[in-house]
Design a protein around this nucleic acid. Sequence first.
DNA 1: CTGAAAGCGCTTACAG
DNA 2: CTGAAAGCGCTTACAG
Lengths: 344, 344
Amino acid sequence: MDMQSNKNIPTLEDVAKAAGVSTATVSRCLNLPDRVAKATLDRVTKTVQDMGYTPNFGARAMAAKRTFTIGAIIPTMENSIFARGLQAFQEELNRRGYTLLVSSTGYKTDVEQEQIRALVSRGADALLLIGYERDPSIYAFLENRNVPVLIAWAFSEHQALTSIGFDNRRSMHRLAKHVIGLGHQNIAVISGVTKWNDRAQQRLDGIKDAVRDAGRDPAELPVIETSYGVQSGREALDSLMTADVRPTVIMCGNDVLAVGALRRAQDLGLRVPEDLSITGFDDIELAEIVTPRLTTVHVPHREMGRAAATELVNLVEKTSTGNSVELQALVELRESLGPPNPQL
Amino acid sequence: MDMQSNKNIPTLEDVAKAAGVSTATVSRCLNLPDRVAKATLDRVTKTVQDMGYTPNFGARAMAAKRTFTIGAIIPTMENSIFARGLQAFQEELNRRGYTLLVSSTGYKTDVEQEQIRALVSRGADALLLIGYERDPSIYAFLENRNVPVLIAWAFSEHQALTSIGFDNRRSMHRLAKHVIGLGHQNIAVISGVTKWNDRAQQRLDGIKDAVRDAGRDPAELPVIETSYGVQSGREALDSLMTADVRPTVIMCGNDVLAVGALRRAQDLGLRVPEDLSITGFDDIELAEIVTPRLTTVHVPHREMGRAAATELVNLVEKTSTGNSVELQALVELRESLGPPNPQL
DNA sequence: CTGAAAGCGCTTACAG
DNA sequence: CTGAAAGCGCTTACAG
């Protein structure tokens, strides 16, 4: 019974017969139209339209050894952190005739490894990965399979991998320098988990750099490392504020943690920034929605997504052999950061 | 040169030779393990492991006429509206051995049609779609192609399509009834665009139902229809507050619009809820982050996503012929809604 | 510019 | 429980 209905869907051969040409010619009309005589092309094109022909994906993938699919593996889809960049990535991919395959890992490296293998075995022509740091064996696997990879959301001159991103360390350094310049002596940090996460590590390092610049010992910087989420930010703030030396500013590894900290501070009756300043990183939409609006580092999400798509397609089509580009993630000053309160 | 490296990747036949069995047997070990003798199975399994064999996706798709891929087409990835549900959807799909293919339409129907066709031609075994309303021809296409569809984020007994969602109209009706019960006489509405969007339409209808229940004429209800986004909410609030009769409560079609309206109201110096109450719909994370926290309708995102994945896989594997399930989206009362201020 | 034909790597009746 | 073989629907040298 299924058979019946499947017979409806036309194959290349059906089109070829209807148009009175060989399957090779129909295939060419679809894939290399300029190697076909105009008249033939027109006739075949019309037949394709009339019959509503659409190539069988599996067959095409097997014969051509490509799928026109590009995979992206991101830590999470739940928050808007990657959403905006990914949206731009997808749009550009579609424009170039590619489809996006997304999966998320929940920030777990072992899950990421599985996903990489899964996407490759599903025929992804290339992969977008977030950050550099992962088990070398997985890079070897990708190399062996001949699958181009692009790293986004990070940028380092010391990495051989092609990447389109920004320097997390330098960007956070700039923000921290500004914070110190305002007169803050007691900085505390809420960092994302740094293990297997170079972005989190680099951002933390950027703060330490600034502390060192100011002639202080970064080892004494109070740092809480915590998992991703608004709730984690809330809890981290609690323990930071019960320390002997109360911080006058809390720098967070991302906006989501910062928003959690901000809300918890307010629940505790602290005024931000009068009693406590708070900063974030990412500049997601949320940063402008909370009161006071969050001082943060602006990540050029859409620009990064678009550029990543372009480069990855070029890599697949071998019109590029790998152009890394560093984008700038600049400090975005808003109301959640002020000078320390001298009365405290 | 490419050829070389491709030779590395083992095929079913390589495995068969190495294990001393036919390709049919290897295939069975992978797909129907209980039709293979234990000893054979063990040997083949080990060989597969040792060689790092992974089936070629295209070949499998063509031979089996299935791809173990399920497509989801959502209006937007940029906001967390669909993100949480989709995350749960993906997790459940992966658990069942399927991969998710996502694309987003930017709330445009013509783009949605293209995406549907693209996903089907890429071999999606089934599709998750948001809401019922779309051109009938596309449903005919899906039927003809024999691709199962599941509708989520909406539920109606009057629709033949299988769906897992909630009754947008009834849920909003409940919230509106509560609002009126608090004594509000001047309600205004900021609605999402209702054209080709049954969820937005139903939510608006739910408010009108309650107005009618209260013996008033829903035609007199001030309604602004606007596109999706925080900024749209801000702008809509402006025009609503300059009307002759100032509303005491603004009911919004979703949380994103509500947050925009809320922030704009505060910028104008209005106290929420003392001077103006505001309500949303969806209960995204944002709803609890803004001050005051948003009264809204809680959508069971994760539950819906998980259930949708289960049902869709069942549909593909023909263990179900279509079980719709209605989930409840209940009113979530928070601080952004209060009684009208008698002094205004 | 076009066609005949091989081949891509699987799955699945069919037969034993 | 297992194998030989056909077939899935394309693309791509190769030849003309």
